[in-house]
Design a protein around this nucleic acid. Structure first.
Lengths: 67, 67
DNA sequence: TCCACATGTAAAGGTACCTTTACACTCAAG
DNA sequence: CTTGAGTGTAAAGGTACCTTTACATGTGGA
């Protein structure tokens, strides 16, 4: 079971760079990049921060890819 | 920012033991206990499994406690 | 009483998440 | 052509998540 996210789509649709987003959220650019590229999943706490940042419900940002 | 959950309430309302729940989910009882006691947050993947297990939306199982 | 059941917790080990520092590539503007 | 902005990635270090093994407590029923 793989968890996917739409962070990149959300970010780009708002014309925000990884740099600005990292600053806004108080995390590093590398972390955002890794999450967008699917290198690993965010922690539940960071997931909550992302939901608040984009102002979208959970289901709109994260979903599972069955296998 | 602290993330809380209602795993214990959900589990007990369904009359399920930690042992059975652990077996159903394929994880250890200690992990469930730790999550219920707030020792740490589940990973995003385990969070998804918990949602499916209880068949509830994200917002009904996890919430943030501001500080 | 005695025992099974449910739960709490601890230590040690492995992997995932996140950081800091650093270097690389592409592309558009000057 | 050169520079800066945006992005990709790697290595090393710390902490969080999850495991296995183990022991301990409380409660209800035979």
């Amino acid at each position: 079971m793989k968890v996917n996210n739409k962070v990149r789509e959300m970010r780009q649709s708002r014309h925000i760079t990884q740099v600005k987003m990292a600053e806004d959220l108080g995390i590093t650019r590398q972390t955002i990049n890794a999450i967008e590229k699917g290198k690993y999943n965010p922690s539940l706490e960071l997931a909550f921060r992302l939901l608040a940042y984009f102002d979208v419900p959970f289901e709109q940002l994260f979903y599972v890819e069955e296998e």
